[in-house]
Design a protein around this nucleic acid. Structure first.
Lengths: 345, 345
DNA sequence: TTGTAGGCGTTATCAT
DNA sequence: ATGATAACGCCTACAA
C-alpha cells in the first residue's frame, strides 16, 4: 500500500501552511481563489484524500447514520432504504446498514456495534420478536437521536414513523364487509409487533362496527410468506363453512393464498374475496389483481431520515414529535369486488 | 451530549498510566490479573467505550466496504446486498451503500466519496450508461481492492463476478426454439452494459445455431419495467406476422408483456411462448408461471464480498482471479411450454 | 489572507 | 509489570 498523502505533504510541496490547506479543502471562503485552486489541483494530482478518522476524532462526529432492520431483501424494506439513502446522502451522511434477521439477539448486537462505531443517529425497524427495547437505552442515555419506523417501539418516550395500521386495516375490512362478506378470515404474523397487533385491532373494530361477531377461529397466524399463504388456503378450505373473505397482513402471503384457493377451484372474488397489505408489485401481477393497502415505503424512509437529520442539525427537538403518521390508502382492485364484477386497476 | 469517558479518565481515577489501561482493555497478558480486573470493572461502571476513530487513526484501517449500485430497490439488488451484508458483517466490516441511480455522473461522485471515506474496498455494479470506468483509477492507483458484479467493467484488468449471460440467454432461446418457435422477439435494455449485450449475443447465437435468420425488427429496446413490457406487447401485436415467442431480458418486463398479451386475447404459451430472466418472485405469481433464468443474487453478493475480503486479508491476489462465473440455470415453467401443454412449477 | 500550535483518544516504542 | 511519550491526520482558536 502506497503511503497516504496528507495535508502536510501538500503543505510542504506548495510551501504553504497546513491550516490554509485544510481551509482550502473545506472550501473556506477566507482562502484566496488562486491559492485554493493551486491546492485543489495538487490534491487531485497527488491523489490526496482526507482522513475520516482524524477528522472525526477532532469533530466528534461521524457523519454516519445507522440503520437496523429485520431484512433488506423485501420490496418494502428496499424501498424504504432507497428513501433513506436519498435524504442522508444529500445531507452528507452515510449509512451503515445492519440486518437483525428478525432476531432480537442480533438486534442487540447491532445496537452495540452501532454505538461503538459512534453513529450520529439511528433508524430502526424492530425484529419480529423484540418486545423490550431497553437495549436502546445506550443511545438514550447519551442523547444520541434515534427513531423507529414501521415496526416501532411502544415505549412512548421515543419517536415513531409509521402508518395508521389500525385504521388501514379497518378500511380494508370494512370494504370487504361492504361487499357483502360476513365470514372474514384474517391472516397475520405470530408477532408482538405493533404492525400486526394494530392491523388485527382494525379488523376486529370493523367487525364490531358492523355487528359481526369476532371468531378466534378465523385468525390464522403464520410467517406471512407466500408459501405460508399456500398453506393457509388449505386451512381455509377445510373450515366447516367456507369463509367469504380473507384479509391478509401482507401481499406476499395474500398472493400465495389467492393462487392456492384458485387452484382448488374456489373463485376469487365470487366465492372468497381477498385483500392484502403493502401494495407490493406482485399485487398487480396476480389475477385477479389484489386489493391492498398502499404502504408508502419510500416516503417513510424519506420522512424518517429527514426527521433524524433535523434532530442532528438541532432543527427540531427529538422529544417534541412523538409519532408521525403517514397516509396509507386502500387500493381497490378486482380481488375483492364481490358486489359488482367490474374490474379495475 | 454527555462527555465521553476516555482511557485518561480511567487512568486518573485509578492512578495508573494510560498505557496500562490501553493494554488491559486489549487483554494484553503482560498486565497483572489484579490490575486488569480493576480496570475492566471501572470501565464498565464509568460507561467507557473505545473510540474507533482514534484507534483507526493509528491503525490505518476503516473496516468499511463501499457498495455502489444503480438502485437498491429491486428484488435482485436487495438480495445481493443481503448476501454482501452477511459476509462483511461476519468479517467485522461495515457497509456504506450508495446509489448511482443509473447515472454515470452520480456514480463518479460516489466513487470519489467512497475514496475520501477511505473504504477498505469497493463492490460495484455499474450504471446503465457507464461505458468508461476510468473513474476507478483512483482506487487502482492506490491499490485499494475493488471488484464489479453483475454489471461489470470490460476493462480486463479488473475482477468481475457475474453469470454467463450469453450462455443463459442461449439456453433460454434454444429452449424456445425446441418448443417449435421460429419468430422470436427479444426485449432488452437500451444499454451498453455487458448484461444486455451478452444476453442479446446468446439470443443471436441460438438462432444461428438453429439456422434461424436474425431479424433486427424482432429486437425491442426499452427500460425493462413492467409498464415497458405492456407497451412492448402492443408493438408485438402490431407486427405483420405475429411472433411465436418472446425472450425478455428481465422478469418484470416479461410479466408486463405477458399480461398485456393475454388481455389482447393472445394465448400464452399456445400463441406466444414467453421467457424472462432473473427468477424474480413475480415469475411464480403470473399465470402462466414464467420460464426464466435463475439469477443467484444472494450467492453473488456472498461471493463478491468474500472475494474482496480475501484480498483485504491478503489471502488472495486481486490480480490473479479475473472473472468469477456463477451458475445460472434455466427454470422451465408453463409460459414457454408450447410443445406439450403439461404444466410445471 | 495565512501561519502556529495544541489537542482529539489510541497504541507502540522505549524506558524504568 | 508499568509508565512516559511520540505519533496517527485533521481542525481551529489565536496570532500575525
Amino acid at each position: 500500500m502506497e503511503k497516504e498523502v496528507t495535508i502536510y505533504d501538500l503543505a510542504k510541496t506548495l510551501n504553504i501552511s497546513v491550516a490554509t490547506i485544510s481551509r482550502a479543502l473545506k472550501d473556506d471562503p477566507v482562502v484566496s481563489k488562486k491559492t485554493k485552486k493551486k491546492i485543489l489541483d495538487l490534491a487531485e494530482t497527488m491523489g490526496y484524500r482526507s482522513n475520516h478518522f482524524a477528522r472525526n476524532l477532532r469533530n466528534q462526529k461521524t457523519n454516519m447514520i445507522g440503520v437496523i432492520i429485520p431484512r433488506v431483501n423485501s420490496y418494502f424494506m428496499s424501498t424504504v432504504i432507497a428513501g433513506i439513502e436519498k435524504v442522508t446522502n444529500e445531507a452528507g451522511y452515510h449509512l451503515i446498514i445492519s440486518q437483525s434477521s428478525e432476531s432480537c439477539q442480533k438486534e442487540i448486537e447491532s445496537v452495540k456495534t452501532m454505538f461503538h462505531n459512534r453513529v450520529d443517529g439511528l433508524l430502526v425497524s424492530l425484529a419480529y420478536d423484540t418486545q423490550d427495547t431497553s437495549h436502546f437505552d445506550l443511545f438514550a442515555r447519551k442523547q444520541i437521536p434515534f427513531l423507529f419506523f414501521d415496526r416501532v417501539s411502544n415505549d412512548n418516550r421515543y419517536t415513531n414513523v409509521l402508518i395508521d395500521n389500525r385504521r388501514a386495516a379497518y378500511e380494508a375490512t370494512a370494504y370487504l364487509i361492504a361487499q357483502g362478506c360476513k365470514r372474514i378470515v384474517h391472516i397475520t404474523a405470530n408477532s408482538s409487533s405493533n404492525v400486526y397487533i394494530d392491523r388485527l385491532a382494525g379488523y376486529k373494530q370493523a367487525l364490531e362496527a358492523h355487528h359481526i361477531p369476532f371468531r378466534p377461529a378465523y385468525i390464522i397466524r403464520n410467517n406471512l410468506t407466500q408459501e405460508a399463504g399456500t398453506e393457509a388456503a388449505q386451512s381455509i378450505r377445510q373450515m366447516q363453512t367456507l369463509p367469504d373473505a380473507v384479509f391478509v397482513a401482507n401481499d406476499n402471503c395474500a398472493v400465495g393464498c389467492l393462487l392456492a384457493l384458485k387452484k382448488e377451484g374456489i373463485r376469487v372474488p365470487q366465492d372468497i374475496a381477498i385483500a392484502g397489505f403493502n401494495n407490493d408489485p406482485v399485487s398487480t401481477v396476480v389475477e385477479p389483481n389484489l386489493t391492498t393497502v398502499n404502504y408508502p415505503g419510500y416516503e417513510m424512509g424519506v420522512v424518517a431520515a429527514r426527521n433524524l437529520i433535523g434532530h442532528l442539525n438541532g432543527m427540531s427537538d427529538i422529544d417534541t414529535t412523538n409519532t408521525i403518521l403517514l397516509k396509507a390508502e386502500l387500493i381497490i382492485r378486482a380481488s375483492s369486488q364481490k358486489a359488482s364484477f367490474q374490474k379495475k386497476g
